[in-house]
Amino acid sequence: MSSSFLQQNGATILSLTIEHLWLTAAAMLFAAAIAVPVGVWLTRSPAWARPVIGLANILQTIPSLAMFGFLLPLPWLGDRAARIAIVALTAYALLPILRNTYAGIRGIDPAVMDVARAMGLTGTQRLFKVELPLAASFILTGLRTATVTCIGIATIAAAVGAGGLGELIFRGVASVDNRLVLAGAIPAAGLALVADAVLGIFERLLTVKR
């Protein structure tokens, strides 16, 4: 990529990178807001774990382009492409967060949970003082996996006009211009690597030594 290309397209790349980041971050927030409480609920009703995690699994198997296509004709959602992108990315992010929340809480030493109950902690106190802190690094691992995956999938969102770095990739493919493809692909890969590293640091900080 020449310096003149970057001079011409630098501002566009930057704004599309910010847009890409925004789409992914919004989806991660929604996914965590749904998957963490559902994961906690599943630990209280384990009979539902298999069907609910199975459903999240099925969502993940839908090809991303098809998912964006399915959502396009829906009322309100279809009005703005960014909404479609966020809903689709949220759906893809559910499984890793849900599965890790469930496994993280279920994996807590039974002796610790036994004492938490026996010493008279209420259900809410057990959740916030014991279960979530001890499962936090697992939950963050799920969030990290989901974030890296969704940064990649978000490039497809440009197909429905949601913006993001995929726009450069699609434009590059259409005009057979590899510079444009790389201008979208390299920042997207960079975002994924940075997100992975930053969340990895948090994950290590939250890991409880036993």
Binding site: D109, D114, V115, M119, K129, V130
Partner: peptide
């Protein structure tokens, strides 16, 4: 809360300091 409970594995909360482990019922 009115009954003390001690088990073989101690069941200490690994993410809390000794001080917080001991004071957790009072915190609750």
């Amino acid at each position: 809360r009115g009954i003390g409970y001690v088990i073989q594995e101690s069941g200490l909360f690994p993410h809390f300091t000794v001080e917080r482990n001991v004071g957790l019922v009072l915190e609750a």
